[in-house]
Every structure is written in C-alpha cells, then in structure tokens.
Design a binder for these strands. Structure first.
Length: 477
DNA sequence: CGACGGGACGC
DNA sequence: CGACGGGACGC
C-alpha cells in the first residue's frame, strides 16, 4: 500500500509535470518517439494514442518520465523538432491532469516555472533569492507578507525563466522548503467583493487573534473624515494595557479630553480592556480613530477603535477646539510622531518601544518583559542548519509570532520560532547550540506581556521518548 | 505538564 | 494541428 504506482499508474502526473503531451505527425510510431526521447531520462511509458475502432494514429502521444527535470529537458529540447523524416515538426507540452482534460488555463508557462515554498518566518526576499539562484535564472523570489504588519507568512514564490530550472529547484532544493509547483495566479475573474465590511460585525476574538486582516484595511472615503461629528471613541485592547499607557498613546493626537479604561471578564484575568476616549473636536477624534484602529499595541495585539455616537455634541465644541488648537508646527510634529508610531507597528517591538519612549518613558520595558533582555541580534544565515531547538510553553496562551521572534532573536543565530497550531507550546530553532542554551537560561520563567513562558531544551523529534523522570527517580540522588 | 507547523499571491 | 488505453490477484 506504500506503492504509489499501484493506485496512480504511470500515466499520472507524479511527480508533477513529468508527463509530456505531444502533437506529432500521424506517421510517427512508438519507436520513433523512444529513439528521440530516451536520452533525456527514464521513460516510464510511451503511449501513442490510436483510434479505438480503426486503430489509426490520432497524432497525439504521451510520454511519461520518472522525473520532472527529465520531462523539462525533453520538452525544451524537442519542442519544434522534426522526427524520423516527417514533414511537420512536433509540438511538445506538459500534459494536463486527466481530470483537467484539454482545457488549459491562461498562465500556462507560469505553472511550470514557479514554485511555492515554505520558508522560515525570518527569511527575507534577498535570502530566498540567494538560495534559489543556484538552480537557475530567477525571474523573482518573493516572500508573502502580511499586508499591514509586513510580517512574513512563512511561504514564498520563486519563479524561474525556464521550466528546467524550476524543475531542478523542485528536485534539489533542501526538502525543508517543501516545494510544489505554484498554481497560476488567478486571472482577471470577476472582481469579488469577498470582504464583509458590515460595521456591526466586530468580533473581538477574530480581530484580536488574526494577524493583519482587520477592518483597518477598509478604504475610507475622505468625506467620511469630519462628517459624522462624533468626538467619543470606544477602544478594545489587550487586557495587558493599562489606563496610563492608553492615555499617553491617545494623547499623541491633540485635543484629547479624557481617557477612561475598564476591564471585562474575570477580575484577576480580564479578557479585554475597554476604553472611552473623548476628544474636543470631531476632527481629532476621527483622526485618532484613523490612526489607532488596527495599531499594534502592545506589539502583536491590534487596537480596535470605533466611533461612539451616543453622545453627539452639537456645535459647542467649535469655540473650544479653536482656542485650544496648537499652532501649525506643533500639529505637524505631532502628526509626524503619530505616523512614525503607526509605521513602527510593523517593526520589531524593540524599535517600537523606542518610539513609545516618547510617551511612556519609564517602565515600558517592564510591561513588555519581566527580565532584562539582551539586544536584538541578527538572525541565522540562510544556509545554517538547525543545531539546537528550544521547546516553548506559554501560559496561559500563545504569544504572537512577532513577539516570539523579537524575544528569541536576542540570543543570536535564530532560524525560526513558532507555536504549534492552536496550542500554547512551540519551538525555537537555532543554528548555534550556545544561542539555544542562552535563550533557555535567560528566558525560562520570564513574563512577556503578561504571559509566563517556559523555555526548555527540546526533546529529539520523532521516536517515543523514555521518560527521564523515571530514570532520575531510580538513580540514587 | 505543554512535544513536533504550515500551503496561495495588493494590479 | 491538439487530450486519455491497457493491464490484471500477489500477500
């Protein structure tokens, strides 16, 4: 049952793109094809299609190779060639799957030249390029990133100029990349409005947990800016945020009247923080909404900011806001501050903290982490192998990836860090044993953003591990 | 007290 | 121009 041929048959597309579809003069027979195509690799089958009744050659032939790269070389060399004294040349293509039949999609070539690969979340485009260029001429190498945070999603596209180059990468790249041939990008179909912007569908858990896909990306028409007249905002934030922090954050925008915060849920372990923030003018209120909605504070946790309409003031604000309005320079500076804050959301929490130092100077690092952290260090090189792994446990719940990365990179040589799906444990991979040991030594038992983390040496993966405790218990002392 | 991931592109 | 046959029971 481990024999994949038994269920697939040699005419299937396994490995992918290893079967040729050939249009050729009807005079050519199987031997003609064999002679011409055997030099490119191991041919599993040649099938010259004949009419069921008459037995006539239909001018269509399939050739199945063992390897994708063999089919690639054969295609690139033989397409357009004339075989065995025939008049017309042959046309060589990659056969579509049997299910797909004869229909072909628009981006035919892209399907053969582009790979979809898994990469460590630390990998950047340039590193991806530098690794994959050894297999051929790269059209582009692109790590997919979250739209708003710019964090890597952990996968990437690599497109080559030739099928044979993509095939070489597909077969020879390190298996940790788990390469597959990429599905062609969806062509100009009907522009689907797949996002649901209904404003009543705020879901705290969704917006809290999901990275990068919040209502924040909603395009807001400029007219919306001042029209509503609201001056009060409702904020939903991580329960780790306190009133002082939130006050200082929203006070960046001029004209804040007050900020009041309460917690929801268990008193000892609140589920979220809810705040009301009131500005002395609708302009600043909507400006603040614009800037802070979706902003990561603390890093990894997006604020949800929405207008509150219950308390609309008429026009009484106007005189007040006029008299309190700072001068132009001051406004410009403040906006610049706020903007750099917003941009910093995509950067490391370390850098973000530096920015936040402007407004919450003293104990911000203690909010972030209970211990003194080393400085941020560069990640491991792209060819570095994993030398040691840490096993991580977060209580009560997993930390966001951006935070994990920031914490664990500080010991140097970090390859990747991730939590297992829907669990509070995960792994950090290092290319240096010392780095892993340092991380364990420093981070074990630390408190990060209100989350207690354990950092242990990871057990060898795979086989059932004997329990150490038992052995320890048996040994005297 | 938790143990081995994940998969689709801003036009 | 141009899209899918034939093989066959062993442990």
């Amino acid at each position: 049952m481990t024999d994949r041929r038994s269920s697939m048959g040699s005419s299937s597309d396994d490995p992918p793109n290893s079967r040729l579809f050939i249009i050729a003069p009807k005079t050519l027979n199987e031997d003609d094809f064999r002679k011409a195509f055997e030099e490119f690799g191991n041919i599993e089958e040649i099938w010259v299609v004949k009419d069921r009744q008459t037995g006539d050659n239909k001018g269509v032939t399939y050739i199945k190779y063992s390897k994708t790269s063999e089919a690639a070389k054969a295609l690139e060399t033989m397409n357009g060639k004339v075989l065995g004294g025939a008049i017309r040349s042959i046309k060589v293509m990659i056969a579509a799957s049997r299910e797909q039949g004869s229909k072909r999609d628009s981006n035919e070539e892209e399907k053969m030249q582009r790979l979809f690969v898994m990469v460590p979340r630390s990998m950047m485009d340039s590193e991806l390029y530098d690794y994959f260029k050894q297999f051929g001429d790269i059209d582009y190498a692109s790590v997919i990133k979250d739209k708003t945070t710019r964090e890597s999603k952990g996968f990437a596209y690599v497109k080559y100029l030739k099928f044979s180059q993509a095939a070489a990468a597909f077969e020879q790249c390190d298996r940790k990349y788990k390469p597959v041939f990429a599905e062609p990008r969806k062509s100009n179909m009907s522009r689907n409005e797949d996002r649901n912007y209904s404003s009543s569908s705020f879901d705290f858990n969704r917006d809290f947990n999901k990275s990068g896909h919040t209502l924040q990306s909603l395009p807001v028409p400029p007219e919306h800016y001042n029209n509503d007249g609201y001056t009060k905002l409702m904020i939903i934030a991580s329960p780790q945020v306190n009133q002082d922090q939130l006050w200082k954050l929203f006070d960046i925008v001029p004209g804040m009247d007050y900020c009041q915060l309460r917690y929801e849920g268990d008193r000892m372990r609140p589920s979220r923080a809810i705040a009301e923030v009131v500005y002395n003018s609708p302009q600043w209120a909507s400006y603040a909404k614009e800037k802070f909605h979706g902003f990561e504070y603390p890093p990894g946790y997006r604020l949800i900011v929405r207008p509150e309409y219950d308390n609309l003031r008429s026009t009484s604000y106007s005189s007040k806001s006029l008299e309190k309005k700072p001068d132009i320079l001051q406004i410009a500076e403040t906006i610049a501050q706020a903007s750099s804050l917003i941009q910093a959301a995509g950067l490391s929490p370390d850098l973000l903290q530096a920015k936040l130092g402007l407004i919450a100077p003293s104990k911000d690092s203690e909010v972030y982490c209970s211990i003194k952290l080393p400085d941020v260090q560069p990640l491991a090189g792209i060819d570095d192998e994993t030398a040691a792994r840490c096993f991580i446990v977060c209580t009560p719940t997993a930390l966001p990836n951006s935070v994990l990365k920031d914490i664990f990179c500080r010991f140097g040589n970090l390859i990747d860090v991730y939590m297992l799906n829907n669990r509070n444990c995960g792994y950090a991979k290092f290319s240096s044993r010392k780095s892993a040991e340092d991380a364990i030594h420093t981070l074990h038992g630390a408190d990060i953003l209100g989350t207690r983390i354990k950092v242990l040496e990871a057990e060898e993966r795979g086989d059932n591990n004997r329990k150490r405790q038992r052995i320890d218990a048996e040994s005297p002392f």
